[in-house]
Every structure is written in structure tokens, then in C-alpha cells.
């Protein structure tokens, strides 16, 4: 029987590196995915995702069992993404076209690439908080409560943040809306 995330975190806090590896394997897709959506390139995404896991390892003793592990991970990732944004503004669309491995996926037809680039441009143009909220809502499919917890905001503030983001996205993606 596999251990729960919380049980693994207790083991991690006692210095068990195998438990930490289990956590990494379970959540690497989530961490990598969110970091990639936000930073827009392989190197930065890997750096942010790895840093998130290392921070979790470093502060494993402070992990509260009451918090769901994924919520905790999203919170750490959110903070790191904001730090990353302050250091350098992401340019996702350029990376999309340069990434050979990525363009060889089934989505690589021209129309799809144009659509994806338009979406990424629209997301890139948002302020950092709004962009994070959009990524958490539309890519990670989190509930408003989870987004609020990850971003240290109230649900009401999250509603307002996402409403503003939607308004901007709608105007940026007007062409996609017409189709």
C-alpha cells in the first residue's frame, strides 16, 4: 500500500530521502507544468520546479499536516514564479517556435501553433498576479478556494482578479472568440 502525501512528508521531515523521491515522482508533472506555463521555457521551468521541491525539502519540518500537499506545492510554486517574474519577464511565444522537440508533437500544425502563440501572448500581456491566477484557473483547473490559498488572497479578491484577467484576455483573444 502506498503512503499518502502527508505520511511521506512526515518521513521527509525525519530526513528520509526515499520519501522525498516519492514526492518528486508524484508531483514533478504538476510542478514542471505550472512552471513551464509561467516561465515559458525549459531552463527556467526546470529551475523553478526544482527550486520548489528543494524548498519543500528544506522546510519539511514546518509542513502542517492540515494543509493538502498539492495546495502547499502550488503556494511554493506561486511564490517562486512571482520571484522569477521580478527577475525577468517571461517571453513564452519565442520559446514555442524555437523548441524543436516540442513542435514535433501532434499539435504542431500551423493553425494550432498560431492559436497557441496567440493564447500565450495574451497571457504574457497580463500583470503577474493575473497571469498566475489564469494559469491556476484554466491550466491547473483549481477551484477559487484553492487559487486563493495558493496566492494568499481571499476568494472574493480572487474573483475580482480573475474577472479583470478575463476582460483583458477577451479583448486580446478577440479573433479566437469570433471563431
Amino acid at each position: 500500500m502506498s503512503l499518502t502525501d502527508e505520511q511521506l512528508m512526515v518521513a521527509v521531515s525525519n530526513g528520509n530521502m526515499e520519501a522525498f523521491e516519492q514526492i518528486v515522482i508524484r508531483y514533478q508533472q504538476l510542478a514542471w507544468g505550472m512552471a513551464y506555463r509561467y516561465t515559458g521555457n525549459y531552463n527556467d521551468a526546470e529551475e523553478v520546479a526544482q527550486e520548489a521541491f528543494l524548498r519543500i525539502l528544506d522546510s519539511a519540518k514546518n509542513y502542517h499536516l492540515s494543509a493538502k500537499f498539492s495546495t502547499y506545492l502550488y503556494k511554493v510554486l506561486t511564490n517562486l514564479c512571482i520571484d522569477h517574474y521580478r527577475r525577468k519577464r517571461p517571453q513564452l511565444t519565442d520559446e514555442f517556435s524555437d523548441d524543436k522537440e516540442f513542435t514535433e508533437t501532434p499539435y504542431s500544425n500551423l493553425q494550432m501553433q498560431e492559436r497557441n502563440q496567440a493564447i500565450q501572448l495574451a497571457i504574457d500581456s497580463l500583470p503577474d498576479q493575473q497571469r498566475l491566477a489564469v494559469i491556476l484557473r484554466y491550466y491547473e483547473n483549481l477551484s477559487y478556494g484553492q487559487i486563493a490559498a495558493a496566492m494568499d488572497k481571499s476568494v472574493k479578491a480572487t474573483e475580482r482578479l480573475l474577472a479583470r484577467a478575463r476582460k483583458k484576455l477577451e479583448s486580446s483573444l478577440r479573433d479566437s472568440f469570433k471563431k
Partner: peptide, 19 residues
């Protein structure tokens, strides 16, 4: 619009490098 937006796979050896 956000449905089916592709995401590249996790880089190879991500977990090994991290560990």
C-alpha cells in the same frame, strides 16, 4: 480556448538531477 493547449513533457532525468 484553454482546453487542449499542449504542454511539453517533463524533461528527461528531471527527478535524477533534482535528487
Amino acid at each position: 480556448i484553454f482546453e487542449n493547449t499542449p504542454l511539453p513533457p517533463v524533461p528527461e532525468d528531471f527527478s535524477e538531477r533534482l535528487m
